[in-house]
């Protein structure tokens, strides 16, 4: 992982996050929801970042499993942790929205359920890595691929089951007043996600180097 990637990405995300509040405040209030609607800028964006992280997790898991690339494994750990964090943000902002909009904190509609399940799989992934002992990296890679396999289901869930959640197709049709701040936030979250990924993967890399040095020292 490039050493300069992290400062660049974190700087870029600071720009996004610095400007985002201005855009969000200037965006008109939605008629029914009022101020609460602005949660959506965080809610939707954190899910997008989570999808990205899961995608990275799945692909790097496959690379590690089939091509035996140790660097892919380090990226997978980073992606899994990032996905858990962004998923948690989605799961927290979701009920805040729901209680105002639908009058309940939690509903078991298709998309919330699938999102919850994905979050569970990711936590299981981290548990496996922590307590699986030696060799669990490869097992975790298998699990990472199963996590990615759920993404398409998550995407189509609201299309197939007509539920309370707005379908995915709503987002591109948003008027510009709402659309610009929304996509701005999404971009900000995605850049932040990438920054976290590079930093975390780099930490794993340093750890691997340390292990290698330790072994070399013993071999003397």
């Amino acid at each position: 992982m490039n050493k300069r990637a992290f400062p660049a990405l974190i700087g870029l995300s600071l720009v996004f996050f610095g400007v985002a509040p201005i855009l969000i405040v200037r965006a008109p209030n939605e008629q029914e929801m009022g101020l609460i609607q602005k949660i959506f800028y965080f809610h939707f964006a954190s899910w997008m970042a989570m999808y990205l992280a899961i995608l990275v997790l799945g692909i790097s898991s496959a690379l590690f499993l089939f091509r035996r690339k140790p660097s892919a494994d380090r990226l997978a750990v980073a992606a899994a942790e990032a996905a858990v964090v962004f998923g948690l943000m989605g799961l927290i902002t979701g009920p805040l929205w729901a209680v105002k909009s639908w009058g309940v904190w939690w509903t078991w509609d298709a998309r919330t359920t699938m999102a919850m399940i994905l979050e569970l799989i990711l936590v299981a992934y981290l548990i496996l890595r922590a307590y699986g002992g030696p060799g669990s990296d490869r097992l975790a890679a298998g699990l990472g691929m199963f996590a990615m396999a759920n993404l398409p289901f998550l995407y189509v869930s609201t299309e197939i089951w007509r539920t309370i959640h707005p379908p995915t197709s709503v987002v591109p049709q948003l008027p510009v007043d709402f659309g610009l701040p929304l996509w701005w936030s999404v971009a900000g979250f995605i850049v932040l996600c990438l920054a976290l990924l590079t930093a975390r993967a780099r930490l794993e890399e340093e750890r691997a180097t340390l292990d290698r040095l330790y072994l070399a020292l013993e071999d003397e």
Partner: peptide, 29 residues
């Protein structure tokens, strides 16, 4: 899913705990 997970957990020590921990989230759908 269960057969795959059960097989791959054979080499880990805490397999009895890990099997349901991994299996249920993946198979809830």
């Amino acid at each position: 899913v269960g057969t795959l997970f059960s097989a791959m957990l054979l080499r880990t020590r805490s397999r009895a705990v890990l099997l349901p921990v991994l299996l249920y989230p993946v198979t809830i759908p």
